[in-house]
Design a protein around this nucleic acid. Structure first.
Length: 273
DNA sequence: ATAGGCCTGACG
DNA sequence: CGTCAGGCCTAT
């Protein structure tokens, strides 16, 4: 579910709430979600730690702890984080509970359980291959047109490449479609056929779409909510995603839907070539 | 590159 | 009942 804009929205809210707070203890209801180390060691390692900072890398949330360890959470498809008061009933599918020293709890809820969490020591991210091999942040200064061109090598379809977290961090199915629409690039185009003009538009579109989505606090298609339980607004601004059969907002042509890299892909056959 | 698997829930 | 869903890993 959550892509870069949704995770960044949650990160900003966590950053207002958590730094300075201690995790008194933690409870794991579904041990499978703790991918490193074992669930018991994870809880032992977290007990008593103070949270110093909440960062984001792609779709991963990274909590820096006072002993140098990192608490990592990936929300998968349907994960969400919420702060709840003491004596509040936990929602269905609450799998991890962090008890904070102000009485509140940070809870991890995830119906489909595609998410994961881990506790990394000494900045060693190798236990999480997806994080260890992640590509550059598209909204950071070093993400240039030239850099993008070098990341998009080979002959894969451009849509598949945008979804590949090892090339660029944080883009998922919604924003890949929206980015390609804005860049006027057909999702089936091959990387080795992109011209300098395409790359320039693609670079600009990646940053514009992601920044605008963050400004709208993400997209809520079905169940995404932020830390406060609020839905995002960007679903109202989508141009192609889930609009198959409807008219293109620019030219009126019917938006098409196809399958690329196993994911549904929406595009305007007239505007995107 | 593609399909299948991991899960639950919504919808037709 | 079947199909589909914001992610990602594996096997073919």
């Amino acid at each position: 579910m959550p892509e870069l804009p949704e995770v960044e929205t949650i990160r900003r809210q966590l950053e207002r709430e958590l730094p300075g707070r201690r995790i008194q203890k933690c409870k794991v209801g579904l041990a499978r979600l703790v991918t490193y180390p074992s669930a018991p060691s994870y809880c032992r390692g977290l007990a008593g730690r103070r949270i110093e900072k909440v960062a984001r890398r792609g779709k991963y949330l990274i909590f820096a702890l006072d002993d140098g360890a990192e608490l990592v959470i990936h929300l998968g498809m349907t994960g969400s984080l919420t702060m709840v008061a003491e004596r509040t009933r936990y929602p269905l599918h609450t799998h991890v509970i962090f008890y904070l020293d102000d009485g509140r709890r940070l809870i991890y809820v995830d119906p489909r359980t595609f998410g994961e969490t881990a506790l990394l020591k000494d900045g060693d991210r190798s236990p999480l291959p997806g994080l260890a091999s992640i590509g550059p942040e598209p909204l950071e200064g070093e993400f240039t047109v030239k850099g993008l061109a070098s990341l998009l090598n080979g002959k894969a379809m451009v849509k598949a490449a945008l979804l590949d977290q090892r090339r660029i961090a944080g883009i998922g199915n919604i924003y890949a479609d929206e980015i390609l629409y804005r860049a006027a690039i057909n999702p089936c185009r091959r990387l080795n056929e992109l011209e300098p003009g395409d790359l320039k538009r693609l670079h600009k579109s990646i940053q514009e779409v992601l920044n605008e989505a963050i400004d709208s606090r993400g997209s809520t298609i079905s169940d995404y909510v932020d830390l406060e339980g609020e839905k995002g607004d960007f679903q109202n601004l989508l141009r192609v995603y889930q609009r198959a059969g409807e008219g293109c907002r620019d030219c009126g042509t019917t938006i098409l839907k196809t399958k690329i890299a196993g994911r549904s892909s929406h595009y305007c056959p007239h505007c995107q070539t």
